[in-house]
Amino acid sequence: MSDRKIRVVVAKPGLDGHDRGAKVIARAFRDAGMEVIYTGLRQTPEQIVDTAIQEDADAIGISILSGAHEHYFRVIVNLLKEKGSEDIVVFGGGVIPDGDVPALLEIGAGAIFGPGTPTSQCIEWLEKAVAEKRSKE
């Protein structure tokens, strides 16, 4: 893996105000040596994708607890494709039923982390996913 620090956008799409998880994971990524851009609440998919592109991010982590996950993952992944940035890794977490996970992976999410996932597991996964992404650059 290159020496370049991993750059990850932690995003809160839509109207959901639960940001404890997003902020905890953002801090954990930062403590693991990554560069973290936290978007704050109420971001549209366009804003999130634009931030990721402008910030030259390796990955977008989407946190959502309102049940609107399928909608937002689909729109964000499609926007990335439209803008030719489908190499950006997309993953997420929140209150997402196990039964919905296959559909999100199908849409293009790299991984979905449910409640109770240790942050170390997310970090490990993201490091691998970004290494793989960069190996194709």
Binding site: L15, D16, T44, G67, H71
Partner: peptide
């Protein structure tokens, strides 16, 4: 537009 995907959810 901001309501898309959220109507009736929580």
């Amino acid at each position: 537009p901001m309501a898309q995907g959220e109507v009736g959810k929580v």
